[in-house]
Design a protein around this nucleic acid. Structure first.
Length: 452
RNA sequence: GCAGCAGUAGCUCAGUUGGUUAGAGCACUAGUUUGUGGAACUAGGGGUCGGUGGUUCGAAUCCACCCUGCUGUACCA
């Protein structure tokens, strides 16, 4: 043990990383098991790809920079840059390109995996988190996009949510392009798209400022706006906030109009409810090409201090018809859905929409190491009866052992000391009520089952 | 990145206009109870007061710089 405190290693976690404990993990496991069932029923193949990929395979981050770590975690291995994946879609594209000849097309696969982002974390957002990804590769049919949403609905319902507790919104990249046809400058166009993406969080008035001269945030910091003329701002916001406008506008009766209508028909065929057209959703700017969507929860979520937090979406996705072509001329249009499982778990735990059993072990107390044979006999008997149980594994006295069991939230302890051994009956103590009873060893399983 | 706020015990925090040896609650350890947890009581351990430098007889307290965190914002495939 080093005495110099400066040599002690830090016990702090890196910014944006988290220890996940049993309560959360059990909840997450339950949700995952439901997801897996649904995926299988829908005919998706299970896939796992590695955490690391060559940097150039999964992003636009070229490793000729000093370090390609803008937003992602990377390091140089021998001569090539490797990066931790930041989503599961980019590795899918790589996988499909690599295995193009072998896989069936359309290719439907789902994947559960941790992804990493090297960015500033926010409330409820971390730099390491678990994602679910389900994709159709090799079809332009919008029935696929609609089926993804049906599946998302089924997942949320299997997690105990009711229809009115979540909402799915969709739009089309084409629609936004048509609205912004008059914005010729690409960098301004990007700025406008980013601003529109913030309507949900900041509200329409603040976004109006972002489209115009700019806006001050809560801390007083100023953000430069897109500097559009008022007339143009009004036009854009009107289009975005009044979806019915799409049905009467002459200006935007183009491909976006027919695409959205076609998609609506698909949704109707699946009889999907609580899904609505919302042109203000934008999603990632880089690779989406058509229909895009977003899943939002409709109930309040609080942080550790009990304050409401703006939870944002728990998932989304859309069509990315060109992504796989980056690897060659594959002509594989695709569409996918991603759900942030940690965030879903966090919200659902507050909602308590699913019940988790505790299942802590019954503790067999150790009076005398020479009697271990007896304790082993008991623990075997209990475990065979499928009762979670353990022999106290420390060195403390009985008081210590009781404190241990109590802290563990064990349902009961078994006392089998000299007195009990003489009579051949163990003392079973219910830790919730404090009641003790004298039980023959062979009856312990049945008596314990009455307690737990 | 930019901006605002904040760093005192494992955790949550108090600490007067700068003044002895820096406090509380919870948690921890031991005991009251050598075979009995939760409650109570008693005692105990635990601090470079984020760091460095400065002002001062004297700094947790004032000043400068740095570091870290929180919140907002920007970026986000």
């Amino acid at each position: 043990m080093a005495k110099d405190k400066k040599t002690k290693p830090s016990k702090e976690l890196p910014l944006g990383f988290l220890d996940r404990e049993e309560k959360v993990l059990k909840f997450r496991d339950l949700i995952i098991s439901k997801i897996k069932e649904i995926m299988t029923v829908y005919g998706f193949q299970y896939l796992e790809t590695p955490s690391f990929e060559y940097s150039e395979s999964i992003g636009k981050f070229l490793p000729d920079k000093e370090r390609p770590d803008e937003g992602i975690f990377s390091f140089k291995d021998e001569n090539r840059w490797l990066s931790l994946r930041y989503d599961l879609t980019a590795p899918l594209a790589r996988y499909v390109a690599k295995n193009f000849m072998e896989i069936p097309k359309p290719f439907k696969r789902y994947q559960l995996g941790t992804v990493w982002r090297n960015e500033k974390p926010g409330p409820g957002r971390y730099r390491e988190f678990l994602q679910l990804d389900a994709d159709f590769v090799g079809t332009k049919n919008l029935m696929a996009d609609a089926e993804l949403l049906l599946m998302a609905t089924e997942i949320l319902k299997s997690c105990g949510l009711k229809d009115n507790e979540f909402k799915i919104k969709f739009s089309s990249r084409l629609f936004l392009n048509e609205i912004l046809a008059d914005v010729k400058d690409d960098s301004v166009k990007l700025k406008v798209l980013r601003s529109l993406d913030k309507i949900e969080r900041l509200g329409i008035n603040e976004v109006k400022k972002l489209l115009g001269k700019g806006r001050k945030d809560e801390s007083g910091d100023f953000t430069q706006g897109a500097s559009l003329p008022d007339k143009q701002i009004d036009f854009i916001l009107k289009q975005v906030k009044n979806p019915s406008f799409i049905n009467v506008s002459k200006n935007i009766k183009g491909s976006a109009y027919s695409q959205i209508n076609e998609f609506k028909k698909c949704l109707e065929l699946f009889n999907l409810k609580n899904i609505e057209f919302d042109p203000s959703i934008v999603r990632g700017l880089e690779y989406y090409t058509g229909i895009i969507f977003e899943i939002n929860l409709n109930f309040e979520v609080t942080n550790y201090d009990g304050k409401n937090i703006k939870f944002g979406s728990i998932g989304g996705g859309g069509r990315y018809d060109n992504l796989i072509n980056n690897f060659g001329d594959y002509n594989l249009p695709a569409t996918g859905l991603s759900i942030g499982l940690d965030r879903l778990v966090y919200a659902l735990m507050q909602k308590q929409s699913l019940q988790i059993k505790e299942n802590k072990p019954v503790v067999i107390c150790v009076f005398d190491n020479r009697q271990f044979k007896e304790y082993i006999k008991i623990v075997k008997l209990l475990r065979e009866a499928n009762i979670n149980s353990e022999i106290y594994s420390g060195e403390g006295k009985l008081k210590k052992q009781m404190e241990y069991a109590n802290k563990l939230r064990s349902p009961a302890v078994i006392l089998y000391g000299d007195d009990e051994i003489r009579s051949g009956k163990a003392t079973l103590k219910n830790l919730e009520t404090g009641n003790e009873s004298s039980v023959k060893i062979e009856d312990l399983p049945n008596e314990i089952k009455k307690i737990i």
